[in-house]
């Protein structure tokens, strides 16, 4: 493993499999009466969140605690930034207290790359702007593998706001690295430029994208995108792209439905689908802890080739 986990882009397929395999072992710890191992005893992990996040932060915190790390979470949303402190200064101040790892969530794409260049601590990207959210893609892959026993050769349809989604970028990178056939679908206004060069099939027909899919992965539609005139209305979005039972019926009979959360029921996904038998949305959340434990454990080792 490299010093930091900045994105799936920097991982080889071997490293991805190592993380997934390690996560298999980590998951068992969560089923014990004492859900804790002493592995990261004496290691300090700082969760530095510049954006609000409940799920990801909680997941990291639980993962850290199960590995016995000393952990603290800082929500920087207001305090330092409003006082005019730069990201670099905030990070250097935390760095001065010698943490071993810093888990970073930030609204700016590339924020983790910037910190990686200035920090000795290992940086784990917990989502940077529209760039990447690598642990989400890893837990998604873990969940897919659990159900389908493989990733290679699967048809995965990713539907929603492709443009603004870091989950999309990480998942596309990971799934194509591991040999899945990835289809992406969303309104033309929300398709990033050069999407075809990511090695995916792009379709504005959600029906085409989900046809015979093994996995359907929904992306969140953010209400604030309405202001950018990307879509006329949430109601119309649901009509054209919302994941309904009829659309799911076009996928393979054993297809699974995923969503990184938080969900907008009735916007990108119908409640009957979200709560349906093919939904693995809550398993994704559960698996997130194991995958993050694996990442924390593997990154805590010595740097390779440095």
């Amino acid at each position: 493993m490299k010093k930091d986990l900045l994105g799936i882009a920097e991982l080889s397929s071997e490293e991805i499999y190592l993380i997934l395999d390690t996560a298999e072992a980590m998951r068992e710890i969560g089923q014990r009466p004492i859900k804790k191992v002493p592995t990261l005893r004496g290691k300090t992990v700082v969760n530095l969140f510049f954006e609000p996040s409940t799920r990801t932060r909680t997941s990291f915190e639980i993962a850290e605690k199960r590995l016995s790390a000393d952990t603290l979470s800082i929500a920087v949303a207001a305090s330092s930034v409003l006082k005019g402190e730069t990201l670099v200064d905030t990070a250097m101040n935390i760095e001065a207290m010698s943490p071993d790892m810093i888990v970073v969530r930030h609204a700016a794409s590339g924020a983790c790359h910037l910190l990686s260049r200035i920090c000795r601590s290992r940086i784990i990207n917990a989502g940077d702007g529209m760039h990447e959210h690598p642990t989400q893609a890893l837990l998604d892959a873990f969940t897919i593998r659990e159900h389908k026993k493989r990733i290679d050769g699967l048809k995965v349809a990713i539907v929603g706001d492709l443009l603004h989604s870091r989950v999309l970028r990480s998942n596309v990178l990971l799934l194509t690295k591991l040999g899945a056939e990835v289809w992406v679908s969303g309104p033309r206004t929300l398709v990033p430029a050069g999407m075809e060069r990511f090695g995916v099939r792009v379709s504005t027909s959600v029906e085409e994208a989900v046809a015979d899919a093994d996995v359907i992965m929904m992306l969140r539609i953010q209400q604030e995108r309405m202001q950018g005139a990307f879509i006329p209305s949430l109601r119309e979005y649901f009509t054209v792209f919302g994941m309904t039972a009829e659309r799911v019926a076009r996928a393979k009979p054993d297809a699974i439905i995923m969503h990184p959360g938080p969900m907008n029921r009735g916007v990108e996904i119908a409640s009957e689908v979200a709560d349906g038998p093919y939904s693995v949305i809550l398993e994704q959340v559960a698996n997130g802890v194991a995958v993050r434990m694996a990442v924390l454990y593997l990154l805590a080792g010595g740097p390779e080739g440095e």
Binding site: A9, S109, G110, R169, A193, G194, R197
Partner: peptide, 20 residues
């Protein structure tokens, strides 16, 4: 709009808003 880089594949990989 809020663009900071050329609208194209590279900006898309980095999640940067593009300017056509």
């Amino acid at each position: 709009a809020g663009g900071v880089a050329h609208e194209g594949y590279h900006a898309s990989t980095l999640g940067l808003h593009g300017i056509p």
